[in-house]
Design a protein around this nucleic acid. Sequence first.
DNA 1: GTTAGTTCAGTTGAAAGCAATATTATCGGCTAC
DNA 2: AGCCGATAATATTGCTTTCAACTGAACTAACGA
Length: 419
Amino acid sequence: MELKLKLNFILVTSNRRGGGIMAQISLNDIFSKYTSKKPIFKDKDTLSIRFTPENIPHRSEQINQLAHILAPVLRNEKPSNVFIYGKTGTGKTLIAKKVAANLEIVAEPNNLKIIYINCKMRKVTDTEYRLLAQLIEFFGEKVPYTGLPTSELYNRFFRLLDASRQNVVLVLDEIDSLVDKIGSLFLYNLTRINQDLEKTKITLVGISNNISFLENLDSRVKSSLSEEELIFPPYNATEIKDILTERSRIAFHPETITDAAIAKCAALAAQEHGDARKAIDLLRVAGETAERIGSNQVREEHVDIAQNKVDTDRYIETIHSQPKQSKIVLKAVLELYKKNAKGIQTGDVYDLYAKICQKNNIKSLTQRRVSDLITELDNFGIISTVNISKGRYGRTRKINVNLSGTVVSKIEEMFSKEL
DNA sequence: GTTAGTTCAGTTGAAAGCAATATTATCGGCTAC
DNA sequence: AGCCGATAATATTGCTTTCAACTGAACTAACGA
């Protein structure tokens, strides 16, 4: 990315007079640095989220359980529906996919159909209609993007299901967001399909990282969805270390990464509810950092830098994707924070916010809305708030900023460009 | 010193308004009989 | 007649505003010993 940007810059400047020679030098510089150094990464793709490793350490129990639960499809019987729960980065998706893939290999052809849908994908599963359209497409039939009543889609879907005479395993990843968007009625209908269909059986595998999701579900859906439950506990530091060691063997050239660096990644990720995905991410960024600095080995200090960068990037990204109004609110908060670090109150924030809006000719929101925006910022972890009552002097929220100095200045930089 | 009542400065929940999108229904034109 | 795309009509969404009830400790005033 950085390289690309720099290249663009060079191309532009070298079109101008005089810029040519300098550009040539720096270009050569970059390339020679790239080729003369021994590379650190052997296969960087293995550190991406999409990569499915052969070997998944510390999850054999879950794999076995899931395999046992789903195995009856091979004998043409209907397995129980499964509900898989576990925090992010505990391998739920990975294992569901893996087991499904193996199942498909073993099963007689045309006897089993596994459908994997990630419900978080916007535009794909926003509404009941789209989801059904997706499902129907999996059976190879096209439906118009619009124009048909939803009930018609149900009919078509049923017909296709019945006609296919297959065992269908439907994996719904991030199922909680599905229910958020289109309600649990859909799931209810799905679980009831089996009673109406003769030749086809459908099995649901729901994956969620939100445990309270099951609790506030319609009880009928709840009981049928969670005939079997699978819990993925978070990894501890040692387990993450194993995972990273295993992965680094295929991702890095030998000797280019120190044990200490791996241990550090593992420790940092373990602190945050044992998120293996984060650990792997950290490893990748640490590798990139080392590469960029020109080191031929990934060391602890690179992990530190990476951790910092990952954190910063995450904040910057969330803030960047916020709507304008929310950014202005944050700007107001930060300005007050610079003046006096403690005791920022909503009232002050709102006043300053209104002022900023006026200055930039932006329509300001009501206090009510701003209050909600502050709550949102709180939820993102960008700021933290405490409700306090100041007796005779009313009630407010005390706001604290959770960002480090570097992040704050980066944000300010961003704001100065945008606002 | 205690107790009961006020008050302030927002918080919070529900409902309604509004504009932007997405969906559905309708219509006129075109083609093939 | 039947199909198609365009367009009007309608519904849904996401974001806000409006309204109004609620909050909880500092402050006050009255109470009682």
